[in-house]
């Protein structure tokens, strides 16, 4: 179990909820539980190969999972996972 905090652009897929509680032993499990139960979310978080998109940052507490064990980072019931958007673009 873990709590995932949902950023504004993705709340349309969580019924407007700012956080969702999901099952899972790792960050990857938790994200998959989230996308498995909330239709329409997966394609915005992951690319066609299943990798998290470059502008999708995932934090466990105050730590970016890129500096932990990425999606293998373990989670517990008290773990707070936050999806933090970055933005990019250009011509």
């Amino acid at each position: 179990m873990a709590t995932i905090h949902i950023p504004t652009p993705l709340r349309a897929y969580t019924g407007g909820n700012a956080s969702v509680t999901v099952d899972g032993a790792t960050v990857g499990d938790a994200l998959n539980a989230l996308t498995g139960t909330h239709t329409g979310l997966a394609q915005h978080l992951r690319d066609a190969s299943g990798k998290l998109r470059s502008f999708v940052n995932v934090y466990v507490g105050d730590e970016d999972i890129r500096y932990l064990q990425n999606e293998a980072t373990p989670v517990q019931a008290s773990t707070e996972i936050t999806i933090v958007p970055s933005i990019a673009g250009g011509v």
Binding site: P9, L10, A12, H44, R53, F55, P85, I87, A88, G89
Partner: peptide
């Protein structure tokens, strides 16, 4: 590039 990096909604 804009589309690839855009957030929905």
């Amino acid at each position: 590039f804009d589309r690839d990096h855009a957030w929905p909604n």
